[in-house]
Nucleic acid binder design. Structure first.
Lengths: 263, 263
DNA sequence: CGAAAAGCATGACATAGATCAAGTAGGTGT
DNA sequence: ACACCTACTTGATCTATGTCATGCTTTTCG
């Protein structure tokens, strides 16, 4: 198994503090939830069926903030004070151990992250940082737990969301344990192709992060990309062009029980 | 990444059918839930706080069965007709893709497995087979979903259980991506030592399965075990004796955010 | 009891993938 | 335009780990 990204990004930017005294050099753009932000998250699966009363409890104490790129939002091990919802930009979840680190997931709008820690009132298992300029809604974990206790509909939505998360991570584990790095890349591209609905699309993250996400080094990702050329995959910068989808899929052998995030 | 266990166990035993016409050569020992089985599962976190009425709904349609070793209980991709609870013996969860397969987890009493598929009414993502003679309670998924809809307390227990499952899988992913195979073995042994509460204990599974679970080949596990000798780990058959816990832990560097299943 | 089969260990070898060291191209700020 | 980054590529190794072959135990079962 690879020792991943020992030299991964570790930027000299202070962790963003939410206690009012912001240690970042960037000002807090906004602390209170604007009315126009509300419908944005109300339509999330997680919130759309809950009662108005409970939803009010949730948004009453909510923050919305704009963060610049490369800001640490949470650090693994910290108590889960907020449920985070990415409503704009992109947030990377990563983890580290013993000086090594690895990208666990990329969170794009509109999604929550680390719901489980909030519910369990446990420590975060992953760190999170913005990749680009991002807009994040922060719901105090206490309020989420209160809402969850008093609103059965919300509780059921949480169950559904958690079940989805669980199944995603299981699929990811299968991906990691059953496939070589080349196969993981091929499937990542195959999935991206399906999501894009086109034979031409952009990689959703820079290559260094993609490598880490796929469990390989950046150097090896470069080589793997070259190795996909005979299978009809052309990559120029972030731009991917599929010239032979059959060949790609014959190598990738996508499996709904690993690659289909809707089941 | 290893191509795991291409030649893993694939026994010529028919999948166990629960539709009444058992295709296995082994008789069904018992189809109806005995009264004495009920308290056994009632004490599970998942069920202990729910109302008696809802619990009755659950057990009304429940089966209890004894299975011999090496019986396939569920196969990945199948619809999740039952929530399974292992009340005796041991069940292995595994997955396969493209002719390769890998052990995902070992389930020991008293635990449920693949709750998420039941809740989502989706296909199983993992297959399950008994490792040894096992006793399994089967709750029809419909009943579980009904109970979950009508009992908020049960819904909250489900949330808690799912959050635990999710966090376990995340920890497992970190273990896989951030550690070498030797480090994974060292941590596995360190964890086993803590669970056993003694410097001498037995491996909880045979070495072939352990290798697959840890993401390595059986040959490599043999070598890794030998490589742990200088760190004070003696393994004879399934028997492990730790002669120098400090040395082991200095290599393993156990981390609560990966190895502590209670957080 | 004896044969067959598992399970495991070990040596020799092959290979995927990590590491190291340059080098290139594209963007950014002065 | 310039220097300076940073991201990425590429080639040359090296290492961890998979694969294959073999033999030794232990267990299973007729």
């Amino acid at each position: 198994m690879p020792l991943l990204n020992v030299a991964d990004i570790r930027l000299p930017v202070d962790k963003y503090q939410l206690d009012g005294r912001c240690r970042s050099k960037y000002p807090i753009r906004q602390l209170l939830m604007r009315p126009e932000d509300i419908p944005e998250i109300r339509t999330l699966d997680l919130f759309q069926n809950m009662s108005d009363d409970t939803f009010k409890v949730l948004v009453r104490g909510a923050y919305v903030q704009n963060f610049p790129p490369q800001i640490d939002l949470v650090e693994e091990g910290d108590p889960a004070d907020f449920l985070h919802i990415v409503v704009g930009g992109c947030v990377e979840l990563y983890a580290n151990w013993n000086g090594r680190d690895t990208t666990m997931a990329m969170v794009r709008p509109i999604s929550t992250f680390i719901l489980a820690a909030t519910i369990k009132d446990g420590p975060y298992l992953m760190s999170a940082r913005t990749v680009e300029k991002s807009r994040v809604v922060l719901l105090p974990s206490n309020d989420v737990r209160t809402a969850f206790e008093q609103d059965g509909v919300f509780a059921r939505s949480v169950v559904n969301e958690l079940a989805n998360c669980y199944r995603s991570v299981v699929k990811n584990t299968k991906n990691l344990k059953l496939r070589t790095s080349l196969e993981r890349l091929a499937n990542y591209i195959s999935r991206s192709q399906i999501r894009a609905g086109s034979l031409e699309f952009d990689l959703m993250m820079d290559k260094r992060r993609l490598a880490s996400f796929l469990g390989m080094t950046p150097e090896n990702l470069s080589r793997a990309i070259k190795a996909l050329r005979p299978y009809g995959v052309m990559v120029d910068g972030a731009r991917v062009t599929i010239t032979n989808l059959e060949d790609l899929n014959q190598l990738a052998r996508p499996d709904p029980l690993i690659d289909d995030f809707s089941v």
